[in-house]
């Protein structure tokens, strides 16, 4: 951990935070155009964390205690990791109209819809980061991991194959709609080195 904190020193953290903020700004703007509504994306705070610390920090938060549907979308390339999106499915009916579904919404429609939102959210945020840092990233189709469970149960020891990850928590809220979703973006340890290299290039240009 000490080593990792050294790696992500103050300047690099500052640069990454700014890159992430800009990416969120762009993602929010694009999504607002997509949904024709004001989109609020919280400014993510990121932290390097191991699985126990992550579970502890999630369990301590009110919003993660409700039962939720958990989706995952893996991404790979120079940026590698997974986006975990958490939905409280009670708001998904309103989403249907926004996503252009007509007629009665079946469970399958609902699933596809939240998978779409997961893909949009992960893609919009990551593309913004990747393009600023000139890094490549590609995506695998998202999938439903568990339906209606507490998130803390999801992150149990042995359920993931990383020891440390860079974690960003982002909250998406659609104004005038009761819909909101939380996303956890995990950058795997393997991405740390290339990420730091690109941040240093940005910093050197100053």
């Amino acid at each position: 951990m000490i080593k990792l904190n050294e790696k992500f020193n103050e300047d690099r953290r500052d640069a990454l935070q700014e890159v992430v903020n800009i990416a969120m700004g762009q993602a929010g703007d694009s999504m607002a155009k997509l949904f024709d509504t004001f989109v609020e994306l919280s400014i993510p705070k990121f932290h390097v964390s191991n699985i126990d610390q992550l579970r502890e920090s999630l369990a301590g938060k009110e919003e993660y205690r409700e039962k939720m549907t958990v989706l995952r979308q893996p991404f790979s390339g120079e940026l590698e990791g997974e986006g975990i999106t958490l939905f409280n499915t009670s708001g998904t009916h309103e989403l249907a109209t926004l996503m252009g579904y007509e007629g009665e919404i079946t469970l399958n429609n609902e699933r596809e819809m939240i998978l779409d939102v997961c893909s949009i959210l992960v893609g919009a945020c990551l593309n913004g980061i990747a393009s600023q840092l000139d890094m490549s990233v590609s995506y695998t189709a998202p999938s439903v991991v568990v339906a209606n469970t507490g998130i803390a149960d999801f992150f149990t020891a042995g359920s993931t194959n990383w020891s440390y990850a860079l974690v960003m928590e982002i909250r998406l809220t659609l104004e005038q709609h009761s819909f909101s979703s939380n996303m956890l973006l995990f950058l795997a340890e393997d991405s740390f080195e290339p990420l730091i290299q690109r941040l240093d290039i940005l910093l050197d240009e100053l």
């Binding site: 694009s30 997509l34 926004l98 252009g100 579904y101 007509e102 819809m113 949009i120 893609g123 593309n127």
Partner: peptide, 17 residues
């Protein structure tokens, strides 16, 4: 009318998959 239009729009707007 089944969400495909939005998928296409999202790819154009967000460059995502």
């Amino acid at each position: 009318g089944s969400g495909i239009e939005k998928k296409i729009k999202s790819v154009f707007l967000l460059k995502n998959l």
